[in-house]
Lab assay of single mutants.
Amino acid sequence: KTVHVDGVEYRFNNPEEADKFVKRLVKEKNGNVEVRGDTYHVE
């Protein structure tokens, strides 16, 4: 899984860790998540 945040790319081998990371980011930023294939885009 890959997570894109503000143009920075984070790669996770463990999908659960990627999910936790995304949830935390969305809370912090009050942002939205767009999923494209295996990539999460957080804005």
Rank of each mutant, 00 (worst) to 15 (best):
Y40T: 09
A18I: 03
V3H: 01
F21W: 03
D38V: 06
E28A: 08
K29H: 15
K20E: 15
R11L: 04
E9A: 09
A18D: 02
F12D: 00
K29A: 09
R24K: 12
V33L: 10
K23Q: 13
P15C: 08
V22C: 14
P15Y: 09
A18L: 08
D19I: 14
G31A: 14
N30C: 15
K27G: 09
R11M: 04
H4Q: 09
F21L: 02
F21P: 00
N13M: 10
D38E: 08
V26E: 08
A18C: 13
E9L: 12
N13S: 13
E9I: 14
V8H: 05
K29T: 12
V33E: 06
D38Q: 06
P15H: 08
G31D: 06
E43W: 15
L25Q: 03
R24F: 09
G7N: 03
G37S: 06
G7C: 10
E17V: 01
H41L: 13
E43M: 14
V42G: 08
K23G: 06
E16G: 04
V22E: 03
Y40H: 05
E43F: 15
V8S: 03
E9S: 07
V22L: 13
E28C: 15
K23T: 08
R11H: 12
E28G: 07
R24S: 11
V35D: 03
V26M: 14
N32Y: 14
T39I: 10
K29N: 12
E28P: 04
K27T: 09
R24H: 08
H41N: 09
Y40D: 06
D6E: 03
R24N: 09
G37W: 14
V26C: 15
A18N: 00
R11A: 04
V33S: 06
R11Y: 13
K27F: 11
T39A: 10
R24W: 14
Y10H: 01
F12A: 02
L25A: 04
H41A: 09
E34V: 14
K20P: 03
F21I: 01
G37I: 12
K29M: 14
K29F: 15
K1M: 14
T39E: 11
A18E: 03
F21E: 01
G7Q: 01
G31V: 15
R36G: 06
E17H: 01
E28V: 06
R36W: 08
L25R: 02
G37E: 08
T39M: 08
D19Q: 10
T2K: 04
Y10S: 00
G7L: 02
H41D: 09
V26W: 12
R36K: 10
K20Y: 11
N32R: 14
K23N: 09
H4W: 15
H4K: 13
R24L: 11
D6W: 05
R24E: 10
H4M: 14
E9N: 03
Y10C: 04
L25G: 02
V3R: 01
Y40E: 06
N13K: 10
P15G: 07
D19G: 03
K23W: 04
K20A: 15
D19H: 09
P15M: 09
K1N: 08
N30H: 09
F21S: 00
V22Y: 09
E16Y: 06
E16A: 07
T2C: 15
F21Y: 02
N13H: 06
L25K: 04
K20V: 10
V8A: 02
D6P: 01
D38L: 06
E43S: 14
V26D: 04
D19L: 15
D6I: 01
F12M: 00
F12N: 01
E9W: 13
R11G: 01
R11E: 02
V33G: 04
Y10M: 02
N30Q: 09
E17P: 00
G7I: 00
E28M: 10
V33R: 03
N32W: 15
Y10G: 00
R24V: 04
K29E: 06
R36Y: 11
K27A: 14
R11F: 12
D19S: 05
K23A: 14
G31W: 14
V26Q: 10
E16Q: 06
V22R: 11
D19R: 12
E43D: 10
K20C: 15
V33H: 03
F12C: 09
K23L: 12
T39D: 09
G31L: 11
V8F: 04
R11V: 08
K1I: 15
N14Y: 02
V5Q: 00
R24M: 11
R11T: 07
K1W: 15
F12I: 02
K1F: 15
E17T: 03
H41Y: 15
Y40G: 05
E43Q: 12
D38G: 08
K20N: 14
E43A: 11
Y10T: 01
G37Q: 07
K27L: 13
V35Y: 11
N30M: 10
E43N: 13
L25N: 02
N13T: 11
L25E: 03
F12G: 02
R24A: 13
V3F: 03
H4L: 14
E9M: 11
E17K: 00
K23C: 15
D6L: 03
D19P: 02
R36C: 15
N14W: 02
E34S: 12
V33Y: 11
V22T: 05
T2V: 13
T2M: 05
N32S: 12
K23S: 12
D38H: 05
D19V: 11
N32A: 09
F21Q: 01
K27N: 08
N14D: 12
E28R: 06
V26K: 07
N32P: 04
E34Y: 14
H41T: 09
K27W: 10
K29C: 15
H4C: 15
G37H: 08
A18M: 06
V5T: 02
V3D: 00
V22D: 02
V33F: 10
N32D: 05
R36M: 09
G31I: 13
V35R: 05
V42H: 06
V8E: 02
V22P: 00
N32F: 13
N13R: 09
R36H: 09
N30A: 07
G37V: 13
G31K: 07
A18K: 03
V3S: 01
V8W: 04
F12L: 00
D19Y: 14
R36V: 11
T39Y: 08
G37F: 12
D6G: 06
K20M: 14
N32I: 14
E17Q: 03
G37P: 07
T2Q: 03
R36P: 07
R36F: 10
D6T: 01
T2W: 08
V26R: 10
T2D: 00
R36L: 10
R11I: 08
V35K: 09
V5Y: 11
E28S: 10
E28H: 08
A18F: 07
V22A: 05
Y10N: 00
N32M: 13
G31R: 07
K23F: 03
G31F: 14
P15A: 13
E17R: 00
K23I: 07
T39R: 07
P15D: 10
Y10I: 03
K27Y: 11
V5H: 06
F21K: 00
D38F: 06
E34P: 04
E17F: 00
G7A: 02
V42N: 10
V42M: 08
H4D: 02
V5L: 05
K20S: 13
K1Q: 07
E9Q: 08
V42F: 12
H41M: 12
V33W: 10
R24Q: 11
N14S: 14
T39H: 12
R36D: 10
K1S: 12
V33Q: 03
N14P: 00
E43T: 15
K1Y: 15
V35L: 10
E9G: 01
V42K: 07
V3N: 00
V3E: 00
Y40F: 11
V5M: 03
E28W: 13
F12K: 01
V3G: 00
E16S: 04
D19C: 15
V22M: 12
N14T: 14
T39Q: 10
D38P: 05
D38K: 06
V5G: 01
V33A: 05
G31C: 15
V26N: 07
F12T: 00
Y40L: 10
Y10F: 06
R11C: 12
K29R: 13
E16W: 07
K20L: 13
V35A: 07
G37A: 05
T2H: 04
K1G: 03
V5S: 01
A18P: 01
V8G: 00
D6N: 14
V5C: 13
D6R: 04
N30Y: 11
K1E: 04
F12E: 00
Y10P: 00
V8I: 09
E34K: 10
K23E: 12
V8K: 10
R11S: 06
V5R: 01
P15Q: 13
V22G: 03
Y40K: 07
R11N: 03
N13E: 13
N32C: 15
V22N: 04
N32T: 13
E28K: 07
D38Y: 05
Y10R: 00
T2F: 09
E28Y: 13
T2A: 04
T2L: 07
N14E: 03
L25M: 10
E9F: 11
D38I: 05
G7F: 01
A18V: 03
V3T: 00
K29I: 11
G31Q: 07
H4V: 15
N32K: 14
T39F: 06
